[in-house]
Structures are given as C-alpha cells and as structure tokens.
Simulated scan of single mutants.
Amino acid sequence: MRNPKNAFKAALQAGTQQIGIWNTIDGKTVVEQLASCGFDWMLVDTEHSPISVTDVMSALQAIAAYPDTSAVVRAAGNDTVEIKRLLDIGVQSLMIPYVQTADEARAAVSAMRYGPHGVRGFAGMTRATRFAKVENYVQTVEDELCLIVQVETISAIGQLEEIASVEGVDAVFIGPADLAASMGHPGNTGHPEVVAVIKDAIARLKAMGKPAGILSLDTAFNRQCIEWGTTFTAVGVDLCLLDDAVRALATSFGK
C-alpha cells in the first residue's frame, strides 16, 4: 500500500486557488456535512474549539469519503507531543498557530520529521501508516506532509521572509484578527492599516513563491485577497454560518 497523495499540497505547489471552509463544531455530523459541500479544503480547528485529537480522527474518517475535499488541521499550539499525535492519526496538512520567529518555524518542522532530521517519535501501528501497511512510510511520509505556519502579529509580519524561508515550511497563513489586535485595532480587521499590512504580506509571500492563505467572513475582502495573490482562502466558519442563518430565521418571525 502506498502513502496517500496530499492533493492540497500538490494544489498549493501548482498555484491553484483552493477555497476552504472552517470547522469548529465538534462531532461527526457537521464535519461530514461540510465535506459534502464541494470546498477544496476544510480546516478542522483544535485551537479555538472543543475539538479533541479523538474528534480529529473521526473528522478525518468522515472527510475521507469526499476525496475532492482535503482535510487541514490546526493544532492548538506549536507542541511537539500534540503534533506527533495528530500526525500519527493521519493528518497530512497541519497548521501551526502563532508562529513568531524562524526558530519557532524550525521547531514545527522538526516536530514533523523523524530523526536524524527531526524529533518525531516512531510508531508503526498507527492510522497514518494504515496500520503498518504503507510501504516505506518512514522514508516517504515527508513528501506528502504539508506544514502551514500561521503569522498573526505585527512582530511576526516583520520577520515574514525569515519565517517563510525556513526549509520545510510549505505555506504561510495570515491571521487577521490577532494581527489587528497586535496593531492596536482589536476587533477591527477592516481597519485601513491592518488591510495594508495584509496586502503587503501577501505580496511579499507571492514574490518569494510561498503560498499565502487567509480566513475572513467578509466575502468582498476574500475576493480582494485572492486578487492580491492568496493561494488558499477560507471563506466561512461553520458556527458563524449557523448563527447567521438561525438569527435571520428568528428575525423573519419577529424574534
């Protein structure tokens, strides 16, 4: 058995725009429903949600039934043990939040690699190895792993090239909300100063040939980011979409 190909990573390398959706609601039903909707990728978020490692494995199993949608998982932090557990259950595309420096990016790379080039622990009987049935898993796994580092403060933006240039970093995701807060504009991602920094960061990544990603609930802004050069763009969050629809329904009945 061969190690499964990472279609999301291949698309980023080809420069093909990938439109995504964000999953924060735990449980199997919502994640499967989202996977059925035709997005190129979906992010299973363990940083700002109650989703656990066990929930992630169920999510991966549900998403696998929809091969046109790729699973990306955001870890809760840049933690070697958590990264190891996520990789062992079969995560191929991993986003690490709040990466502030090139050294922190290198630590994430190391956590995703076996020795002698990293510190990932060895385990054979895992879902990632298809329970020891993938041939030469240890030798081939890194070809299909995709590491996305999340740059989300003005300090990190100042070190963008150094972070993005770390060998093993496949893409950079810009976090508008924390970026705005770090710039003194909490809750105002649309502030002109914040938008200007985001536009500049996308241009700098594009000049490097490094895929840039973003999440926004503003459709017009998402389209603008795509024009500026994002390669993977998340356009909605499940809980926000649910809340919008339910509130609109209640309002239509005078509530």
Results as ranks from 00 to 15, higher is better:
M1T: 05
N3R: 14
I19Q: 09
N23Y: 04
D26Q: 14
V30L: 09
S36N: 10
T46M: 15
P50G: 02
I51V: 13
D55K: 03
V56K: 08
A59L: 04
A59P: 05
L60T: 00
Q61R: 15
Q61L: 13
Q61S: 12
P67E: 00
D68T: 12
T69C: 15
R74T: 03
D79V: 07
V81E: 03
E82L: 13
I89D: 00
L94R: 06
A107G: 00
M112H: 05
R113P: 08
Y114V: 12
P116S: 14
H117D: 12
G118M: 10
G118N: 10
V119N: 13
R120W: 04
R120Y: 09
G121Q: 02
F122V: 15
R127N: 10
R130E: 12
Q139N: 07
Q139I: 03
E142G: 01
E142P: 02
L145V: 10
L147N: 01
L147S: 01
I148A: 03
I148R: 00
V149A: 01
I157F: 13
G158M: 07
Q159S: 14
Q159Y: 05
E161A: 11
E162P: 07
E162W: 06
V166R: 06
G168Q: 09
V169I: 12
A171P: 06
V172N: 01
A177L: 07
A180G: 04
S182L: 11
S182D: 09
G184T: 08
N188M: 10
T189A: 10
P192I: 02
E193F: 09
V195A: 13
V195W: 06
A196V: 06
D200Y: 05
D200C: 04
I202Q: 01
I202F: 08
K206E: 04
M208Y: 07
G209V: 09
P211I: 11
G213F: 06
I214S: 10
L215I: 14
D218V: 07
A220Q: 13
N222E: 07
C225P: 09
I226H: 06
E227W: 05
E227K: 13
T230E: 00
T230D: 00
A234Y: 05
V235D: 03
D244R: 15
D244K: 15
V246A: 15
V246R: 14
A250K: 15
A250T: 08
S252C: 01
K255F: 13
